[in-house]
Amino acid sequence: MGRLYERLCEDLRCLEGLKSCMNCGVCTAICPSAEFYRYDPRKICDTVQRADDESIEQLLKSDTIWYCGECMSCKTRCPRGNTPGLLIMALRKLSQEMGYFTDSEKGRQQFAIRRVIGDSILTTGYCMRPILVNPANHPEQGPVWEWVYNNLPEVMDKVGANYLKDGPGALRRIAPEVLSEINQIFQVTGGQDFFQLIEEFSKDKADEMCLDAGELGGDNAYFSEVYTKNSGNHH
């Protein structure tokens, strides 16, 4: 029993997600990701179940664990009550803690997520805000959204949102004292440290790839690399 396997077992989601797998394949059968990627949750469970550190390490460094969409459809069907999706979450956490995520194309994308979603949570109290859905980066949102985006205060006002204002309501401004509470929680629970870890490993990788990772936001070469790079080798 290896070191990585033991660390994995410390994660509740691993304990909950993988009790004992009998390789029936029901998870892969309904997995949306298995349909479009070279991805087989059954095999992941089997690999982890074998408790072999070498193959677990390989897994943590691979693109494979990043294909899951965390829809948790697998949970509904597993006859043994496993949740491969939860196991994936534990694997992803460990991959980031070990810095292995920067070894794979899909893993490196964590940097972009940390910069966009992570920063948004800490600075505005929301995961997602209209302003983040920039039509330039989101061509699929279409011309209506572009119109909304260009007229945010007016449109939001018309539909009864409290756009960037104080008090309750949709899209209100989150008060600074609330944000400090959120930051405090991240500080206390290790969320902040985890962000830092992603930053550091990503910056090392950026240096290795001779790309600039910047200090803030997504306005840098490493960000656009990880945000847009698709080698096409995933299916």
């Binding site: 298995a34 349909e35 479009f36 070279r38 061509p139 299916h235």
Partner: peptide, 12 residues
């Protein structure tokens, strides 16, 4: 290229 992604062929 303008979308930055494509429809993926099914593996199923």
């Amino acid at each position: 290229s303008e979308w930055g992604f494509t429809v993926i062929q099914t593996n199923q």
